[in-house]
Simulated assay, not measured.
Amino acid sequence: MSQITQSECSKVISAKLKTRDFKILRYQQIEFDEIVGYLGDHCTLEITILRDNHEETYSFFMKSAPRVPSQRTFFEEIDGFSKEKNFFTKFHPMLKRHNIDIIDDVIPECYLVFDETFILDDLKRKGYVTLPSRSPLAIDCIKAALASLAKLHASGLILEETKSCRLTDEFSLKESFYSGQGSAEQALQSAKGGMRAFCDWAKTDEALKTRIVSGIEEKKTFAVPSSRFRNTICHADPWTKNFLFKFEDGKAINCVTVDWQTYRYGPPAQDVLAFIYLVADGDVRKTHFDELLAFYYGELSKAMGKFGFGDVVTREEFFQSCQYFKQFALTQSLTHFQVVLLSDEDGKELFGNPEKAKSVIFGDDRYEFVQKILAKDPVFRKRVCSSVEELIKLHEEKCN
């Protein structure tokens, strides 16, 4: 974790308070006990100042490049720092210049960027919470997050319509997960081992297993900008820990989306489908899938309509794109599950050992690792098997 200086603390407070009339008294970095993400090191930054003869303490969320060597290499190869920096210092300010404010309440405020480090709002001090990734989200949380994604997607579409350009003309939108190079390719190939373990656990026949594992390679095709459907800025990594929720009377009333190292340019359905498969269990998908898609499209249309662009993505196009990206989303969720559904104990054991992390995440040990987790972890097993059954059914339907 990077060590912040007093001078940098002054910049953070100046950005937050819009004044320089204060004195830094003390500051400290408090690292988290739990894993909150895999592409960064995180801590709380507390800064105490003297202003108008009164002490005031402010809390921030501090995120730096990961220290684990294999994760660090991946982070550098996908240009994770520059992408997130561009999001906060270029994309969001450009939206503001064009009076597009619809994402202001669904992304954190960024106060300072330096040395591969971001200082952001401490959302937990504002009443937001992170929910466990191993537990499926409730319907109200899913809808709150879909509303957040709708505002993100709409912001990119509105910016393109306003400027009569494409976001690819303005920003670097290099693909992170499916570039076919370096650590990203190694992780992709390693994920095939995990998928084979899933198929073997489900006793899938060899021909179908081959098709399912090949679907991991096909994600490279799905992840490029579409020539058929309208593209916009997509989060691309919409798993549970990248959403923070605020509750009122036990119901989610807002959701803030975080972590922008891997965003891409693609159709909104990429994010929507991947999110639903990552956070909802099989029963919720079975009974509420169409309802959730309709809810998302309503939120997208509402956001677009405020700026006079309500028909840019038609309902028909959106639902067609959802059908097209179903295999991609199911496959992506199952490759993510191999890491993000681990218990705290297994996660710490894996990422606390750099060599083991490298061999499992980027090497040849994924199959054995996933088999072991399937055998001992009923929570992991239940979530995985439900999605594997859906993916098997989807491939069987495509063959008939």
Rank of each mutant, 00 (worst) to 15 (best):
W201K: 13
A207C: 11
Y178L: 07
E34K: 15
P267F: 03
L374V: 05
A202H: 10
F60L: 15
I373F: 04
N53T: 09
Q189L: 09
K63W: 13
E34G: 06
V12R: 01
G308M: 00
G127E: 04
H336S: 12
S133M: 04
A294W: 02
V370T: 09
L17Y: 12
G156I: 03
R264C: 02
E170S: 03
S387E: 15
A236N: 15
F114N: 10
L149F: 09
E84Q: 14
G127I: 02
S226M: 07
L146T: 00
R381W: 08
L25P: 10
F325T: 01
Q29P: 08
N53V: 08
F362K: 00
R20P: 13
E8H: 09
R134N: 11
S64C: 13
E34V: 12
A154S: 02
K348Y: 11
A236W: 14
Q270H: 11
L391F: 09
D249Y: 11
R97D: 06
L244C: 11
T314V: 06
L123D: 04
L394Q: 03
A303C: 09
D205E: 11
E175Q: 11
L173T: 04
V370P: 01
V284Q: 13
L39Q: 03
E218P: 08
G156P: 07
Q371P: 08
A15F: 15
G127N: 05
R26H: 12
F325Q: 02
T117V: 03
E299T: 01
E396N: 13
D344P: 10
E248N: 09
K18R: 14
A197W: 01
D311Q: 00
W239Q: 04
D346L: 06
P69A: 12
A15L: 14
F75R: 01
K251H: 13
V224E: 11
R381K: 13
H235M: 14
I276A: 01
T287S: 15
R383V: 04
V284R: 11
S2G: 07
G215C: 09
Q261C: 06
E170P: 00
A65V: 11
N53I: 06
D200Y: 06
I102W: 02
Q332E: 07
F309P: 00
V388T: 14
L334M: 08
D249I: 10
F118T: 01
P132W: 05
T162M: 09
E84T: 12
T314M: 04
F32S: 01
H336V: 11
K356W: 11
G37H: 03
E349P: 03
V36D: 09
V272M: 00
R381I: 04
L188V: 14
M304K: 00
Q327D: 08
Q332F: 07
E345A: 07
G80V: 05
D364W: 05
R97T: 12
L123S: 02
S172H: 05
D205W: 07
T168Q: 08
L244Q: 12
